[in-house]
Deep mutational scan, measured.
Amino acid sequence: MLDDRARMEAAKKEKVEQILAEFQLQEEDLKKVMRRMQKEMDRGLRLETHEEASVKMLPTYVRSTPEGSEVGDFLSLDLGGTNFRVMLVKVGEGEEGQWSVKTKHQMYSIPEDAMTGTAEMLFDYISECISDFLDKHQMKHKKLPLGFTFSFPVRHEDIDKGILLNWTKGFKASGAEGNNVVGLLRDAIKRRGDFEMDVVAMVNDTVATMISCYYEDHQCEVGMIVGTGCNACYMEEMQNVELVEGDEGRMCVNTEWGAFGDSGELDEFLLEYDRLVDESSANPGQQLYEKLIGGKYMGELVRLVLLRLVDENLLFHGEASEQLRTRGAFETRFVSQVESDTGDRKQIYNILSTLGLRPSTTDCDIVRRACESVSTRAAHMCSAGLAGVINRMRESRSEDVMRITVGVDGSVYKLHPSFKERFHASVRRLTPSCEITFIESEEGSGRGAALVSAVACKKACMLGQ
């Protein structure tokens, strides 16, 4: 009897593995994704193909990295998701002549009506938060230079001027797309009239992360975010950046690689679950690469896999709870928690219980395998993109072996128990001629924006502006 049951459990697990095998990517698959990513990057950089390229390769006008001589107080704003952060950054000489960066910050959550109302409502709310922060720190009387981390696709015309191309991540505030974001912020500050600010720089969160990590390690020339969304930036040779005049030196390019796949480059790798996630998203047909990796989508992918296993009578005796059938019910943090389970399955059992399920031991094991399959594919897909960037940098610099540091931020990278190990191992397999160091950014977005502002202020002083 026991043997029969054991055989049935083994057969069930084997069927589960057959279904989950769809998520496995072979090294040849990853090399294919990497080569296609490089081709799209090239198209994004070139003037004649930029418009139709899915990977936009947006110039950021960040050319210099901090040298350690900029000092002063800077205000930093960070808008990239449902939370908005205001930070005071003091850049100065530390002990023994070292450079020191001290920060104080406060988080504000953005109400739904500000995210989806008008641009005026959104930026009025942001300036209200700045006003509140300055009151708390008794700094209303000071006109501070301000660095703005704005983590949406922007076409820069200068370091302090950028046109919002399109909202992502659930934002829909009308009247912002096609307009200068810094102008919208300046107008809102003017409307309030109770404080003055000098907006000197606007950067993407990947750029802010790279600059913040450069402060720790001067070989950091790539910034990457794996959180709600997924994106990367890197220092490109100016001669390859056709959208900006000049051939000397390097400029940081914001790849906006989340949109890779929007022209069909990933079609052969998309599964039924991916198509369902895409169809029910706020932007169907867009940001397809990001939807395979980002935390906004990972939990939902797992939920759809679990429903398939229920329908195949391989999980929960073929019956799903009402909660499990509800879109968004299986949160991405559950994926991390399930994979963090120590082996007694308590954590998995508790999560499934909150979803109205009474799982068996085998159910718990199957749910864990589903989570591992989805998150491992995410790590491997992400590795193909980064390997594409790094191999490109090595080739354009004609280096036999390139040493490089990548600064990384984002909740999936930082909080998932195995993502970074799987990701690092896969990147290294795909970049055999590179020695890569990964560092995690601390308060990256805010500190990085302030350091970019410090560079901009120093330049302005040198130019006598």
Rank of each mutant, 00 (worst) to 15 (best):
F84V: 14
S109R: 14
C252S: 02
G147R: 05
R250K: 10
A10R: 09
K459R: 11
P145E: 06
C213W: 01
P111A: 09
S373T: 11
L30F: 00
I130F: 03
A176Y: 05
R403C: 14
V367Q: 00
P432L: 04
A119K: 11
S373H: 07
V253T: 04
D341V: 05
T354P: 04
M251N: 03
P153W: 06
A450E: 12
D363R: 00
R36A: 11
V55G: 01
G97P: 12
L292H: 12
V277I: 11
Q38R: 12
I439F: 07
G385P: 02
E435L: 14
A378Q: 13
V86I: 04
E52I: 07
S336A: 13
L88I: 04
Q219W: 07
D78N: 09
Q286Y: 09
C457Q: 08
V412S: 09
M381A: 06
D158I: 12
L30C: 13
C457T: 15
S336Q: 10
G446N: 13
E242N: 02
I163Q: 15
E265A: 07
T361S: 07
I225S: 11
K136Q: 05
Q38S: 02
C252W: 06
F23G: 01
Q219R: 08
V406C: 06
R308D: 05
L415I: 06
G295L: 07
R191I: 02
Q286T: 14
F330Y: 06
G343S: 05
V71P: 03
F438G: 00
K161E: 11
M121Y: 06
F152C: 14
I404L: 12
G285I: 03
A449S: 11
A21D: 15
I225A: 06
P432I: 13
I130S: 01
R428Q: 10
E120S: 05
K56R: 10
R43E: 11
H105G: 06
A449I: 11
I211T: 02
V253C: 05
K296Q: 15
L164A: 14
Q239M: 13
K420Y: 06
E339G: 04
Q239N: 11
M57G: 00
S411N: 15
C233A: 02
A21P: 00
Q287I: 12
Y125H: 08
N231F: 02
E237M: 04
G246I: 10
F23L: 09
R397S: 14
I390Q: 00
D262R: 14
G448T: 08
Y125D: 02
E157A: 10
G261F: 06
I110H: 00
F438Y: 06
F123N: 04
V305P: 01
E70R: 14
G44E: 01
M235H: 01
E128N: 01
S445T: 15
F195A: 11
T168M: 13
R447G: 12
Q465A: 11
T431W: 00
A387P: 00
S280E: 14
K414V: 03
A119L: 10
G264T: 02
D363T: 00
Y349S: 12
V101P: 04
L292N: 03
H424C: 09
Q18C: 15
F171Q: 11
E372S: 06
D344N: 03
N83M: 12
M115P: 03
M41F: 14
I293H: 12
I439S: 08
F419G: 00
T354K: 13
H380I: 10
D278C: 02
S212P: 02
Y297T: 07
Y215D: 12
D3Y: 01
T362Y: 04
R155M: 07
E93F: 14
N83A: 09
K414D: 02
L451T: 06
A387R: 00
Y215F: 08
A460M: 12
T405D: 06
F423D: 00
S131P: 01
V62A: 04
R155H: 07
E435S: 05
E265S: 15
N166A: 12
Q138T: 05
D3T: 02
E300V: 00
A21H: 15
F84P: 05
F330E: 01
N391G: 09
L25D: 02
R333C: 08
P145A: 04
A378E: 02
Q18N: 11
D400E: 14
D132R: 05
A176E: 03
A449H: 07
R447V: 15
M381Q: 01
A201Y: 03
L306R: 00
E256W: 05
D4T: 02
G162E: 14
W167I: 13
T206K: 01
I225F: 11
R43K: 15
E372Y: 03
E40P: 00
L45Q: 01
F316V: 06
M251Q: 05
V277A: 09
A329G: 13
C213T: 05
R397L: 01
D158L: 10
M238T: 07
E96A: 10
C434K: 00
D247Y: 04
V226S: 03
L270D: 01
N240P: 02
W167R: 13
L146V: 15
C230Y: 05
H156L: 07
I293R: 00
C233W: 06
R325A: 14
C457L: 14
V241R: 00
L288Q: 09
K31T: 02
Q465W: 07
L463P: 13
M8P: 05
F316N: 03
S54Y: 01
V338A: 06
R429E: 13
R345G: 13
G446R: 12
E216A: 05
G444N: 08
V302N: 01
R428D: 07
L324I: 14
A173G: 12
T65N: 14
F330G: 01
K161F: 05
R397D: 04
H218L: 03
G81D: 10
P145H: 04
G264Y: 08
D4P: 13
D365I: 07
G407V: 03
R394C: 05
G227T: 02
A114I: 05
R392V: 02
D78Q: 12
G410T: 04
M202A: 05
E300N: 00
T206D: 04
G446P: 14
G178R: 12
F152D: 15
Y108M: 01
G147P: 03
A370L: 10
I211D: 00
E27M: 02
A329F: 15
L292T: 08
K291I: 02
L79M: 13
N313Y: 06
G94A: 13
K172D: 06
V207G: 01
M41C: 06
P111R: 10
V200A: 08
A378S: 08
D187C: 03
V181P: 05
S396R: 15
L77R: 01
K13E: 13
Y413V: 07
E120Y: 15
H137P: 01
A329E: 10
N83H: 10
L185C: 05
K136W: 04
K420F: 01
K56Y: 01
V86T: 08
N240D: 14
I293N: 07
E312V: 06
L185V: 01
D113V: 09
N350I: 01
G343Q: 10
L292M: 15
E70C: 04
G261H: 03
D73E: 05
V71R: 10
E9D: 13
P59E: 15
A232M: 11
S131D: 11
A259L: 11
E442D: 09
R85K: 13
N283K: 13
H141T: 07
D363F: 00
Y289C: 07
S109V: 12
G261A: 03
V62L: 06
D135L: 05
M34R: 05
A320G: 15
S151R: 09
M402K: 13
F152R: 13
D365C: 03
F148R: 04
E312K: 07
R186H: 11
T332Q: 14
F23Q: 00
G72Q: 02
Q26D: 08
C461N: 06
G444A: 08
R303A: 02
A114S: 07
E9L: 08
L77H: 06
A10M: 12
T149Q: 10
F330S: 00
Y234P: 01
V91D: 04
E28V: 04
Q18M: 04
Q138V: 06
D124F: 01
G448W: 09
V16Y: 08
L266H: 05
E245T: 06
E268K: 07
K12Y: 15
I404M: 09
A454I: 05
G258L: 01
L306G: 01
H105A: 05
N350F: 02
K90L: 10
S383D: 01
F171D: 14
M462S: 13
L2G: 09
T405F: 06
V277F: 06
L288I: 15
E27D: 15
M57N: 00
L386H: 02
T65S: 15
E272V: 07
T60Y: 02
D311P: 02
T49C: 05
M197T: 14
M235P: 01
I293F: 06
Q337P: 03
